[in-house]
Design a protein around this nucleic acid. Sequence first.
RNA 1: GCGGACGUGGCGAAACCGGUAGACGCAGCGGACUUAAAAUCCGUUUCUGCAAAGAGUGCGGGUUCAAGUCCCGCCGUCCGCACCA
Length: 912
Amino acid sequence: MPRYNHRDIEPKWRKAWAGARLHRALTPVEAGDKPKYYMLEMFPYPSGRIHVGHSRNYAMGDVVARYKRAKGFNVLHPMGWDAFGLPAENAAIERGVHPGKWTEENIVAMKQQLELLGLAIDWDREIATCRPDYYKHQQAMFLAFLKNDLIFRKKAKVNWDPVDNTVLANEQVVDGKGWRSGAPVEQRELEQWFFRVTAYADDLVDALTKLERWPDKVRLMQTNWIGRSQGARFRFETEDGAEKIEVFSTRPDTLFGASFVALAPDHPITKRIAESRKDVADFAAHCASLGTSEAEIEKAEKLGIDLGLRVRHPFDPDWLLPVYAANFVLSTYGTGAIFGSPAGDQRDLDFAHKYGLQFVPVVLPPGADPATYAVDDEAYTDDGTLYNSRFLDGLSTDDGIARAIEELEKRGAGEGTTQYRLRDWGVSRQRYWGCPIPIIHCDACGLVPVPEKDLPVTLPEDATFDRPGNPLAHHPKWKHVPCPTCGKPATRETDTLDTFVDSSWYFARFTDPKNADKPFDPALAKYWLPVDQYVGGVEHAVLHLLYARFFTRAMRDCGYLDLPDGEPFAGLFTQGMVTHEIKKGLELVAPSIAEANRKLGFGEGRFYSLVKPAGLVEYLDISAVGNYIQVGDDDSGEAGDDNVYRVVWLGPEEEGAAGTASWTGPIEKMSKSKKNVVDLDAFVTDFGADVARWFVLSDSPPERDVEWTASGVEGSWRFVGRVWAAVESHGQHAPKPDEKPPVGADQGVALEIRQAAHRAVVAVGEDIEHFRFNRAVARAYELVNVIRKQDGANDAATVWARGEALRLLTQIICPFMPHLAEECWQTLGQDGFVTAAPWPVADSGLVAENTVTLPVQVNGKRRAEITVAKGSPEAEVRAAALAHADVAPFTDGKTVSKVVVVTDRIVNIVAQ
RNA sequence: GCGGACGUGGCGAAACCGGUAGACGCAGCGGACUUAAAAUCCGUUUCUGCAAAGAGUGCGGGUUCAAGUCCCGCCGUCCGCACCA
C-alpha cells in the first residue's frame, strides 16, 4: 500500500484548483439566487516571511470559506497586503533597499507561502495598499471627507525626536527616549490632519449593541475607549469678572461641596500666570517632566500650586473659591479644568487634605445619620441623598444632577453635555512610506486640494534615506509644484497618512478591486458588504476595528457606500495565537567561553551564562549541561521563581570554540524576534500543509492560544496516515452520494457505522458554524475510530456503509485538509472536486437516536443504567429503574420518597 | 485603582437548557509485529483502594431530587483602561 505522499499530492491539487478557478467569487449575476458570503481574515503586513504561527488565522478563515461554499453560498475570500509602514522604511535606512522594492519582494515571497497552504483564496482580487491604483482612491476619498468636514487641521502635541528630526508614535518612545536615537523626546506642537471620528461618537457606541456576532470583550473595549460620560459643562467667573474658567463634571449635584477649582499645568490660564510667576512656571515644568507610566501615576502625590485667583461659585456669587494648578488635572480631557468637591472624589479629597482645604460632605449614603456622618480619608463616590446643599437638599443623586443642570442653564452659567474620552484621529505621519496627502500649501491661496485629475499623488522613486527626517520633506524637487489655483510656486504636503487609514477600507476595495475610476462600484459593495465573518487578532480590538467602523460611516455619508448602518463587519472572531517554547541563547563567538563571558559582561570562569527574558543572569557550572535545573533555588536566582529550565550546550565542549548555549523555557507567542518560529516552507515539505492546518485547529479552542509541539504535530500526521490507509484499503466500493443503501444497511455494524457518519456530518457542520474547530476535529477522530474498529467486517452492507462513511469523512475533513480530501475523493471514485461538492445532507433517520441510555441515580449517585426507547413514558421508565438489580442494594431498607424522571435524560431515586 | 474574562486528570481540553464529569488529542504504562529499533497496530490510563467502595471540576458556604454549570463570600491567573473629573 503506497504511503500518502504529500509532496506530490498537495501541489498537484493546488494546481488543479487553480486551473479550474474553483476559488473565484462569482459576480452577482452569475450567482443568481445563491446567497453571498464574505469571509475575510485581517490582511497581513508583508514583513518578510510567514511562519506556521501565522497560518492559524488563515486556516480558520479557510475552513469557514470552504464550508460556506459547500453549503451553497457565493463566497468571497480575498487576500491582500497592508503594505505601507515603518519596517520598509527602516530596511531602507539600515540596508539601503528601496522600501517599495523591499515590500514587493516580500509580497512575492509571502504569496508563495500562503499558496503553499492551499487556501481557497480568490487571488484575482489581490490588492496592495502601497500601489497607486489603491491609494489613488484613498486620496480622492480624503478630499471628499475634507469637503464634508470629516477632516480638519489643527495644532497638536506630538512626540518629537530632536536627533532624528521626526515624530515618534507612542510605541516608539521608550522610557521617555527615542527608540532609535536614544535622545530625550520633546513634546512639540505641529499642525496635523485629523479625521473627525468624534462626529460619530454616539453612533459608534450605540451601534455596538447591535453587533451581536462580535465578542462581548471587543464591544466592551470599544465602549470604554469611546468613554462617553454625561454631565455638565459650566463656568466659574473670576472675582474681578474679567475671565471665566470652564469645567466639566459628571457630578454637578455636588457643587455645594466645592472647595476649589483646579487647572491643568498646561491650561492656557496657568501658562499665562506662569509668565509672571516663576514658582508657577517651575511647577508646570516639574509636572511636564513627570512620567505618565502606570507605576509613576500610582505613586504620584497630588501636587498643586495656588494661582492667586479667586472665582465665584455659580450658585452663589458671594462664595469665593481658590484656583490651583494641579498635576492630576489633564489638559487633554474635558476642558482641562475641574472643580474640586473633596467629600465625593478621592483625588479631590487627597488634594484637600494636603492643602488644608474644606471637605464638607453633601451626599448622604443610604441609611447614614446626617447628624453624625462624616468623611475622613475616604471619599464617598456612590449615590445617596443630597444634603448641606440648599435647594438640592433631599434630592437623589440623579434628580440632583438634573436639578443642578437646570439651575446652571437658568443662570446662563453652563449646560448639560456629553463628554467623550475618544479623540479625533491624528493621521499625519512625517514618513516616506505611506499614502501622500493630496494637499498643496500655497502662500496666497492657503490649503489647496490636489485636483482630481492630478491624482494619484505618487511617491518619488528617488527618495534618499541616508539622513534623519522625512525623505519627502528634504527631497530636492518633489514638493515644489505650482499652485493649482493661482499658479504661483507652492509646496506639497509632505506628511503621509497613518497606515491605519489604508486598512480602514480595504475590505470594500476587495468587492471591486480593479475599478480604475472609483474606489469601488457602490452596487458591488452593496452586494458584498458587510463582511459576514472577519477573523483577526484581538490586538486590533480598538484601533483598526474602530477606524474601519468610522470609515464606513464616512464613506456612506460622502456617497461612496450604500450601507445604512455603516457597520463593515457583521461577525467578528478574535483568534488566539500559536505559541512555542523559547530557546534563547547566547551566541558565543569568542576564542573561549571565558572570553565570551567577559565580552558579554557576565564575569569570568568556566561558566555558562543563562539569560532569562527579564534579563536575570545565571552563572552555571559546565556540569549543569544536559540537566534540568531549578532556576531560583540558588543564590543567583530570584526567590519564588519555580520555572524549570533545561540547559543545553549546542557547541563543542572544549574551550576555544564557538557555539550556542541555550535554555528551553517558557512558552511564548511565535514570533521572529523571539526566535521560536517554525518555518512554514520547511514544515510543509516535511509534513505537508494539511498537517499544519489540522494541527493549529485541533486541541485548543480557536479563541485561545495553542501551543505548537512536535508530538502534537505527529498526532496530526498520524491521523492523515490513518485516514489515507482506511480510504486506500476500503474505499474501492464507495457509493455515490445519490446511491440507495443496500438491504441490511439498517442493522448491525452497518447501521452503527452509518449512524456515526451521519451524526458526524451534522455535528461538524454545527461546530464550524460556531467556530468550534477543536470539536470538529474531535468528531472526525471519533468517526475514524468507529470506521477502523469494524475493520474486519466484510458483509456487503458493512462494506457499503463503510464506503459511504469514508466519503462523508472526506467531505467533513475537506475544509480542514483539502489536499488529503481531494486525493481521497478521487480514490473513492467520486466525481469532480470534493472542494466543489455540496455539503452532504445527513439522513435524519440515522441522526436521530431511537433508544437512549439513562443513568439511574439513587440519592444523586449513579448506580445503574437502563436503555429504553426514546420518549418512553415516565411510568415505564420509573418501573424499569426501580426494578433494576443494581439499584436494589441501595434502596433496600429505605423508603423511596420520590422518583425524578427527566425524559431521555436521567432517573433519580430519592430514598431515605 | 476601575472594568472584564477565566480557574476541570501528568498536559491541551470536552461536557449545548442544571441531568452519567473527563469526549478527542498528547504524554505515560502493558502487549503484538520485528534479530533489534523506528514506524504501525491492539489494550489501558482522574485519584485512593486488591476489591467492594469512596473522593473529585481553585477554596468556603447556599439553592436544588440533582451543581463544573445558578447564588453569596474568598483566593489565584490573564486581558483591557488608567489621575477621564
